[in-house]
């Protein structure tokens, strides 16, 4: 789309920084138990990393690595995982979203809650990442080359 920047400097700096932004996004999601951040913030960071690449790298390269349909798939998978985590405790007779009600894992209640939080954070991250990226892709496709 807008990927024909005349400045080589912008392109080099952006492509050097982009991987670090992506790793930081995953870190923010995974480290939500111990520090600031979580699914929402991490998902936005991941999306912004891809948006930076969309703005600066050659479109035909990036379309193969992260096709626009990947954003929609990520959104749907994230929502499905969240809903599944919400509903699974009901099968074991617990309440909606009560992760500790899941039986047969041999883990303590607090450990189950810990893992449930982690799954939910990644699901929220996937939804936010996909949502933001798909809005950006649709908007950007309206701009003339």
């Amino acid at each position: 789309m807008i990927g024909r920047h005349p400045s080589e400097n912008v392109r080099v700096v952006a492509s050097l920084g982009m991987p670090f932004i992506l790793v930081f996004g995953v870190y923010v999601i995974a480290h939500g138990h111990y520090g600031p951040g979580g699914g929402f913030a991490g998902g936005v960071i991941l999306a912004v990393g891809i948006v930076l690449a969309r703005l600066t790298t050659a479109p035909e390269l990036l379309e193969r690595a992260v096709p626009p349909i990947a954003a929609v798939i990520s959104m749907i998978v994230g929502m499905g995982v969240f809903l599944a985590v919400a509903i699974i405790p009901l099968v074991f007779g617990g309440e909606l979203l009560d992760y500790a009600a899941i039986e047969g894992t041999g883990l303590t209640d607090s450990r189950l809650r810990y893992l449930g939080i982690m799954v939910v954070e990644f699901a929220v991250g996937a939804v936010v990442f996909g949502g933001i990226l798909s809005i950006f892709d649709r908007l950007a496709s309206q701009v003339k080359q």
Binding site: G32, S110, I117
Partner: peptide
Amino acid sequence: DSETPNVVTAILADYRS
């Protein structure tokens, strides 16, 4: 309850999930 030192995360993803 959830081995989560960051209370904000525990509230967002467990208590008020």
